[in-house]
Write a protein that binds this DNA or RNA. Structure first.
Length: 487
DNA sequence: AAAAAAC
């Protein structure tokens, strides 16, 4: 298990929302939502957003980033009406972009909640569903538009919305939005917006490359971070079990049973794998729903809703569910596959342990995952111990059959065995890297973000993505594979 | 080794 001790970074008593210079309409909505005090990211970011500054905000998963940008933006929109435009025309004044449809939907729900006592209208547009109702909403006029990139471009090109009056832009899960897969769409969208605007970037993970790239989209920004970047919530118990592929399903079932886990998300790396895994759990009698990009949008929303309502126990999902989704009191997350990007590990396990609740995150590790685990270890700056797992019951079918041929046995209650992917746990390392103290930075001007880095303009485009060569830790006690062998 | 986001 990972040492989750965190230094107390924000010892000051939590400030209340009603100490902020907010319109009574917004304070009432906040109170309606049941919120009294601010989380650290909210306490730090809201005053700065109110000042009109560009912000890059980094805070742990599940600490209220959505409210941290939407509440102060609504306040600014109430206070600074655009005098050149009649309010009756409802031009889009604030644009929020999110990387998945479900997340856009969730953000929109929150914005609506905070704006409900104001005259400000909002709507959400994303792909996979009929454009017409969205078009009608847009033509009726909205001040706040929440969107995924592809569908927004469709609406822009169809002239269903005009974005030349946008004063505020938010990139939720900003590091993903600036990722190579989204960047072209993002740049096209930004090209339709006025240059003079306030831009906010929020995420739980920001790599140094992305931080640098992000600066080219911000003006004189302030970095707000409330914990060491890329940090996982200290309330989440993280475990890594070394297993074989054949044992993975059984291990999950066993943990669910042994720990009496009510509900969990199981993450897989591929759509096909997730679909198969979901069917397998279904056959085992678990109430299961699948969520991935090959499902219709209708099915996706139904799966998520059923899970949130507690009608299904297991949500088997790709990384479409990794980021941002707020599922109340989710007790556990399983990584059936180790994620390809270490950042996604942080986001996946961030679905549990939200808002200070406790949670369990189990990652199943096979011998082939050595490098990926080393990447995670490096990102979260914590020593990872891969533990052996004691499996109850029979071996997976093909193995037990083979064993029977060799030595026929009178099978009674099968003895527990250890799932052994033929590696040994990591030896404790003396690497001081993992115990580096965290230096809190409340207001850091961009130049200081990258100490010692060249002060030349931030690189635009692909050069920002060239990562340094990854180092393979001798995680399983073995040597890194020779190139000839790995082919 | 993949996923996501438009039709």
């Amino acid at each position: 298990m990972i040492d989750t001790h965190e230094p107390a970074l924000d010892a000051a008593p939590a400030a209340r929302f009603d100490t902020l210079p907010l319109d009574p309409k917004l304070l009432r909505a906040v109170a309606d939502s049941g919120y009294l005090t601010m989380t650290p990211i909210q306490a730090k970011a809201i005053p700065i957003v109110l000042e009109g500054r560009d912000v890059m905000g980094a805070a742990q998963t599940g600490t209220g980033k959505t409210a941290a940008f939407s509440i102060p933006l609504l306040q600014r929109m109430l206070k600074h009406e655009n005098p050149s435009v009649s309010p009756a025309r409802h031009p889009v004044r604030a644009l929020v972009l999110a990387p998945t449809r479900e997340l856009a939907d969730q953000v929109a729900e929150n914005v609506k909640k905070y704006a409900k006592h104001t005259h400000l209208r909002s709507t959400v547009v994303f792909g996979g569903i009929d454009m017409k109702p969205q078009t009608l909403q847009l033509k009726a006029g909205v001040e706040v538009l929440i969107a995924t990139p592809g569908r927004l471009l469709d609406h822009i090109e169809a002239k269903n919305c005009v974005l030349n009056q946008v004063e505020y832009v938010v990139l939720d899960e900003a590091d993903r939005m600036l990722d190579i897969g989204f960047l072209p769409d993002l740049q096209r969208i930004l090209s339709y917006l006025p240059k003079a605007r306030q831009t906010l970037l929020f995420s739980a993970t920001f790599s140094p490359e992305i931080k640098r790239l992000a600066q080219s989209y911000l003006q004189d920004p302030i970095l707000v971070e409330t914990a060491r970047p890329n940090q996982t919530a200290s309330t989440v118990e993280q475990r890594f079990y070394g297993v074989t592929d054949d044992d993975k399903r059984g291990v999950i079932r066993q943990i669910l049973r042994d720990r009496s886990i009510r509900q969990a998300i199981v993450f897989g790396n591929s759509k096909l794998g997730v679909a198969r895994l979901a069917r397998s759990f279904e056959r085992d009698g678990l109430r299961t729903a699948a969520l991935h990009g090959d499902k219709s949008q209708d099915e996706r929303l139904k799966s998520l809703d059923a899970f949130k309502r507690g009608e299904v126990d297991l949500l088997v999902a790709t990384d479409v569910a990794a980021r941002g989704l707020d599922i109340a009191d989710l007790p556990a997350v399983f990584n059936f596959d180790v994620p390809f990007n270490a950042e996604d590990y942080v986001h996946r396990i961030g679905r549990t342990g939200r808002a200070g609740a406790s949670g369990l995150a189990v990652t199943l590790v096979t011998r082939a995952d050595t490098r990926l685990v080393a990447d995670i270890e490096k990102l979260i700056k914590r020593k990872i111990e891969v533990e052996p797992f004691e499996v109850e019951g029979e071996r997976p079918r093909f193995e037990s059959r083979r064993r029977r041929e060799e030595a026929p046995v009178e099978e009674e209650a099968p003895a527990p065995r250890v799932s052994r992917p033929s590696f040994r746990p990591v030896a404790p390392s003396a690497d001081p890297f993992f115990d580096k103290p965290y230096e809190s930075s409340e207001r850091v001007e961009p130049a200081a973000w990258e100490k010692g880095k060249p002060t030349s303009p931030a690189p635009k485009g692909l050069s920002a993505y060239i990562k340094p060569k990854r180092q393979v830790a001798a995680l399983f006690g073995g040597k890194p594979k020779a190139p000839a062998e790995s082919a």
